[in-house]
Nucleic acid binder design. Structure first.
Length: 121
DNA sequence: ACTGTGACACTGG
DNA sequence: ACCAGTGCCACAG
């Protein structure tokens, strides 16, 4: 039979992953998507963060621990993270110390990019 | 059906 | 470090 995983189910898994982030620990959009078994859905993680209230949104960063928000929002995120004891290395979070390790995570799910050639008319 | 958008990820120059 | 190009997925118009 067909598995037809609905978007709703994927969203639910993403939400769970985000809720699993304990204070002082962070993750990234892409890592959350992979941990939720939905590799490549970083942009969907963003949507979910904006739509679902009550999530620890400040613990989700861009790749490499970069804050992808701007202006006041970025300041707010930095503030909240510092309040939880998260340390920074310049403008980015020290992932070495604060990246949360999801036990699950899809095995060797490399980003499906087949560069090797750029736009070639 | 098609196009543009977004708190993204990656690679290459 | 920065920018450009490409890939990704769902959603709004």
């Amino acid at each position: 039979m067909k598995r037809t995983v609905t978007v709703e189910q994927k969203r639910a898994r993403v939400v769970r992953c985000i809720r699993d982030l304990p204070p002082g620990k962070v993750s990234s959009y892409g890592a959350i998507a992979r941990a939720a078994g939905w590799p490549g859905a970083a942009r969907q993680v963003v949507r979910i963060l904006q739509q679902v209230p009550g999530l620890p949104w400040h613990r989700v960063l861009g790749s490499g621990g970069a804050i992808k928000l701007s202006g006041e929002h970025a300041a707010e995120q930095r503030f909240r993270l510092r309040m939880e004891g998260v340390t920074f290395r310049g403008a980015r979070v020290d992932m070495k110390q604060h990246e949360f390790q999801f036990t699950k995570k899809v095995p060797s799910t490399r980003y499906p990019v087949s560069s090797k050639r750029k736009a070639r008319p």
